[in-house]
């Protein structure tokens, strides 16, 4: 820590990879998280995060690529959750029951993996649960960043109809917005970003990346589009803050630093006075501002 802060971390390839993947993942999570909060589906995100763990461990136990399991599990589960509830909005109790079983299955796969493959990779379970963003390879970082950018672009593309469908489902359906299709599409995107975030902060902590920036943005502004942008921006800033903090304080795992930054920002919004209440935002959206 004798070198100046700005110069030293950026000269390490592992930090650059983490920064590249982390930035893209955080932006995607911020965008998706905003809608999860608006649609009161944070619990679905929570469930997906646990499913991601089982998917990854199952892939490891059967000797497949970890990411294959991640993506397959989260996307399938996201779509399943969609079919379990009306209008692709699942019931909390059903989600809870399903995901706690899936998590139990994850515990089974951990045991299967650690017993069958000797002790070559005994910490894999912990790595999936809590992430290891500094251990991400160049190739994985690029793939993660590309997928995250894709998710972000898709979110921006469907933001307008999705917002409409979220705020007033009945009117949106009447106007010919494919509400159901959007619901499923959004859940699939949420699944992909959960799988992405697992690689950065781990499956247990990705909920913070989804919920905290979005919650903070909604507290700070009434306007949906501004909140959407703010949510993505805050997520990226929190990711950076976490990465740099963790670099300077090596004892602190990066996942914790990122979550701490996210929590501090969210807590700070409780100190800020909320913008004038009343609800101009809803009319603003519907007229297209």
């Amino acid at each position: 820590m004798t070198l100046p802060l700005a110069a030293s971390p950026l000269s390490h390839p592992f930090f650059l990879h983490a920064l590249l993947a982390g930035t893209a993942i955080a932006a995607a999570c911020g965008l998706v998280g905003h809608f999860l909060v608006l649609r009161a589906q944070v619990f679905t995100g929570d469930a997906l995060s646990h499913v991601a763990f089982t998917g990854a461990m199952a892939a490891l136990a059967f000797g497949a690529d970890l990411r294959l399991g991640l993506f397959a599990a989260t996307i399938c589960m996201a779509l399943l959750f969609g079919t379990l509830g009306r209008g692709a909005r699942p019931d909390d109790v059903v989600i809870g029951s399903v995901f706690s079983w899936i998590l139990g299955l994850g515990a089974f796969f951990v045991t299967l993996y650690t017993t069958s493959r000797s002790t070559t990779n005994g910490t894999a379970g912990v790595r999936v649960l809590f992430g290891s963003v500094f251990g991400i390879s160049a190739h994985s970082a690029v793939v993660a960043a590309l997928v995250a950018v894709g998710v972000g672009l898709l979110m921006v593309l469907i933001a307008r109809p999705l917002l409409f469908a979220t705020l007033d489902e009945a009117v949106a359906a009447a106007r010919g917005v494919p509400v159901k299709l959007l619901g499923y599409g959004f859940l699939a995107l949420a699944g992909i970003s959960a799988a992405e975030a697992t690689q950065a902060v781990g499956s247990l902590l990705l909920l913070g990346l989804l919920a905290a920036p979005a919650g903070a943005a909604i507290r700070l502004t009434n306007r949906p589009y501004r909140a959407l942008a703010l949510s993505a921006g805050l997520a990226v800033l929190e990711m950076w803050a976490g990465l740099f903090t963790s670099y300077t304080v090596p004892k602190m795992p990066p996942s914790f630093a990122i979550m701490a930054a996210a929590t501090v920002v969210y807590a700070a919004t409780f100190l800020v006075r909320r913008p004038a209440s009343g609800r101009p935002a809803r009319t603003a959206v519907l007229t297209g501002t």
Binding site: L207, L209, G215, I218, F256, M259, A262, Y266
Partner: peptide
């Protein structure tokens, strides 16, 4: 309101899990 409660709950949860990891 419900949506803010869930964001709050989620944030509390993620932060505490992260602390546990620390």
């Amino acid at each position: 309101g419900e949506h803010e409660d869930s964001a709050l709950t989620g944030t509390v949860q993620a932060f505490l899990l992260a602390s546990g990891f620390l």
